[in-house]
């Protein structure tokens, strides 16, 4: 069975402005972080997946269909766009219910679904408030409820944490994780790495309209072969440890600090094996080993900022 979301050599221009270029992507069930700096092409990618715009070249397939040409396919897609505009005079409940009716539900079912979706997004108590009087965080939740109201298979969230307070962010992160476990494809776009890291470790990295990398964070880090891994080792006698480490193969350099050393490792596999043996021998007082550049921030930096 083919993945629910497939991009095949997709390019998209806005006149002479490049949105995305030659994107190949296949997303299976789970949560994906769509990462990139502002203007990288994240929103364009989500709009293409939602059928809001058509590709200039290539094809986008959602559950085997074209979301731009076939309105029926859009029944399986929920999008939470980055726009903060609504029909301000409506209540959150009325708006979400109205949107649910556009997805084909009758009045009663649309109302039931709207109430449930708003409740799930933490808007149970404020659902009868006019949208115009809602805070930015509330509006964000209403938008998310709208995206969830028809129980979509593909959920596209464009900068969803914008405007949420810390409690709301926490609840939202948990909700996204839960949605990803429920057999859906959830794509969360953000330029805030920490946000994405909390939700998933599977990322798609976009830069200047091109896909730079996709997969697990560790997997992508492993592909940055020209960048030595930086590993911090806390120990009782850094000088002795540094001497032992220097004797190992594939070491690019060592920084000596008070109570710790930072090693630049060229081939991490062999290094960690040797380090384990060294630790088992005892005498050096190794307390902790921590990779410094295996997180999303570092991977992003290596791939984009350089």
């Amino acid at each position: 069975m083919s993945p629910p979301l497939i991009f095949e050599r997709v390019s998209r221009w806005y006149g002479e402005v490049l949105g995305v270029s030659e994107i190949d992507l296949e997303l299976e069930e789970g949560v994906y972080g769509l990462l990139g700096v502002n203007g990288a092409g994240k929103s364009t990618l989500l709009k293409l997946a939602a059928g809001l715009i058509a590709p200039s070249l290539g094809s986008v397939r959602v559950l085997g269909g074209d979301p731009h040409a076939d309105p029926g396919i859009r029944r399986s897609i929920g999008i939470c766009p980055d726009v903060d505009r609504f029909y301000e005079g409506m209540t959150g409940f009325a708006w979400v219910a109205h949107m649910a009716r556009l997805f084909g539900f009758d009045r009663r079912e649309a109302g039931r679904r709207a109430a449930a979706a708003l409740d799930r997004c933490g808007m149970a108590e404020s659902m009868t408030k006019k949208i115009g009087a809602c805070s930015k965080g509330m509006r964000q939740r209403i938008k998310l409820a709208r995206a969830l109201v028809h129980d979509p298979v593909l959920l596209l969230l464009d900068e969803p944490l914008t405007g949420l307070d810390p409690v709301g962010r926490d609840a939202f992160v948990r909700l996204v994780r839960e949605l990803g476990r429920g057999g859906r494809v959830v794509v969360v776009s953000s330029h805030v790495l920490g946000e994405v890291e909390e939700m998933t470790n599977r990322i798609v990295l976009i830069h200047q309209g091109r896909k730079m990398a996709s997969g697990g964070i560790a997997e992508i880090r492993g592909q940055c072969e020209d960048r030595p891994h930086r590993v911090e080792i806390r120990c009782a006698s850094p000088r002795d440890l540094a001497r032992e480490v220097l004797a190992m193969e594939g070491i690019g350099g060592i920084e000596l600090h008070e109570g710790r050393i930072v090693v630049q490792v060229l081939s991490p596999g062999g290094f960690f094996e040797s380090l384990t043996r060294l630790g088992a021998r005892g005498g050096l007082g190794i307390e902790a080993v921590q990779p410094l550049d295996a997180d999303l921030e570092a991977v992003f930096g290596y791939l984009v900022r350089s």
């Binding site: 939602a50 059928g51 809001l52 309105p71 029926g72 396919i73 859009r74 029944r75 897609i77 999008i79 766009p81 726009v83 505009r85 609504f86 029909y87 949107m99 556009l102 997805f103 084909g104 709208r146």
Partner: peptide, 14 residues
């Protein structure tokens, strides 16, 4: 202009 059309264009309607 308000971009609320986005919500209609992403609904399964013609």
């Amino acid at each position: 202009a308000e971009k609320t059309l986005t919500f209609l264009l992403t609904a399964p309607i013609r």
